Simulated scan of single mutants.
Amino acid sequence: MTKLTQGRRGFLGAAGGLAGGLAMPALAQERFPSKAFRVLVPWAPGGATDVLMRALCEAASQRLRQPVVVENKSGAGGILGAQALVSSRPDGYTLSQMPVSVFRYPQMVEKPPFDPLADFTWILQLTGYLFGTVVRADAPWQTFGEFLAHAKANPGKVTYGSPGAGTSLHITMEQIGRGQGIEWTHVPFRGAAENLQALLAGQITSSSDSSTWAELVKDGRLRLLCTWGPTRAKRFPEVPTLREAGINIVSDSPYGLAGPAGLDPQVVKVLHDAFHEALLDPLHRGVLDRYDMSVAYLNSEDYAAAARRQYRDDGEMIRRLGLRAG
Score class of each variant (00 low, 15 high):
residue 41 V to L: 08
residue 32 F to R: 05
residue 126 L to H: 09
residue 272 H to C: 06
residue 104 R to C: 02
residue 54 R to M: 10
residue 276 H to S: 04
residue 37 F to R: 06
residue 246 G to Y: 02
residue 121 T to C: 05
residue 129 Y to F: 15
residue 234 K to N: 15
residue 284 H to V: 11
residue 124 L to W: 08
residue 207 S to L: 03
residue 149 A to G: 01
residue 153 A to Q: 11
residue 56 L to A: 02
residue 241 T to S: 08
residue 5 T to E: 15
residue 296 A to W: 13
residue 47 G to V: 08
residue 155 P to G: 08
residue 68 V to C: 13
residue 151 A to G: 06
residue 204 I to L: 04
residue 306 A to C: 03
residue 68 V to P: 09
residue 245 A to N: 09
residue 296 A to I: 13
residue 27 L to S: 15
residue 55 A to L: 07
residue 288 L to A: 12
residue 161 G to P: 11
residue 128 G to C: 10
residue 49 T to G: 04
residue 318 I to A: 00
residue 96 S to T: 06
residue 321 L to A: 06
residue 69 V to E: 15
residue 147 F to R: 03
residue 293 M to F: 07
residue 77 G to L: 02
residue 276 H to Q: 13
residue 100 V to M: 13
residue 94 T to A: 04
residue 33 P to V: 11
residue 171 I to W: 03
residue 179 G to P: 01
residue 177 G to T: 01
residue 241 T to Q: 05
residue 308 R to H: 05
residue 250 V to C: 08
residue 123 I to N: 03
residue 166 G to M: 00
residue 259 G to L: 00
residue 99 P to I: 07
residue 182 I to H: 08
residue 211 S to I: 04
residue 253 S to V: 09
residue 160 Y to N: 10
residue 210 S to M: 13
residue 314 D to W: 14
residue 149 A to I: 06
residue 6 Q to S: 15
residue 317 M to A: 15
residue 209 D to Q: 11
residue 116 P to G: 01
residue 33 P to S: 09
residue 77 G to Q: 04
residue 254 P to A: 04
residue 234 K to H: 14
residue 36 A to F: 10
residue 319 R to Y: 02
residue 107 Q to S: 00
residue 258 A to F: 02
residue 159 T to H: 08
residue 78 G to T: 02
residue 150 H to I: 04
residue 202 G to S: 00
residue 157 K to P: 12
residue 308 R to Q: 11
residue 66 Q to E: 14
residue 46 G to N: 04
residue 151 A to D: 00
residue 105 Y to N: 13
residue 181 G to K: 06
residue 22 L to N: 13
residue 236 F to G: 11
residue 148 L to M: 06
residue 89 R to I: 12
residue 251 S to F: 05
residue 78 G to L: 08
residue 86 V to E: 02
residue 194 E to F: 03
residue 216 L to P: 08
residue 90 P to K: 01
residue 162 S to Q: 04
residue 312 R to C: 10
residue 259 G to T: 02
residue 222 L to A: 00
residue 258 A to Q: 05
residue 109 V to L: 02
residue 45 P to E: 01
residue 37 F to Y: 06
residue 138 D to A: 10
residue 23 A to Y: 08
residue 180 Q to P: 00
residue 287 V to Q: 14
residue 237 P to D: 07
residue 56 L to G: 12
residue 304 A to C: 01
residue 218 K to F: 03
residue 13 G to I: 13
residue 36 A to M: 12
residue 70 V to H: 10
residue 255 Y to N: 11
residue 82 A to Q: 00
residue 100 V to R: 10
residue 170 H to V: 07
residue 91 D to N: 07
residue 311 Y to M: 10
residue 98 M to S: 12
residue 62 Q to E: 14
residue 307 A to I: 12
residue 251 S to D: 14
residue 252 D to S: 14
residue 310 Q to I: 12
residue 27 L to Y: 14
residue 81 G to S: 05
residue 152 K to V: 05
residue 224 L to W: 11
residue 221 R to I: 02
residue 261 A to N: 02
residue 186 H to D: 11
residue 58 E to D: 10
residue 280 L to W: 06
residue 202 G to T: 01
residue 262 G to Q: 01
residue 239 V to R: 10
residue 187 V to W: 09
residue 63 R to D: 06
residue 27 L to E: 13
residue 63 R to I: 09
residue 226 C to K: 03
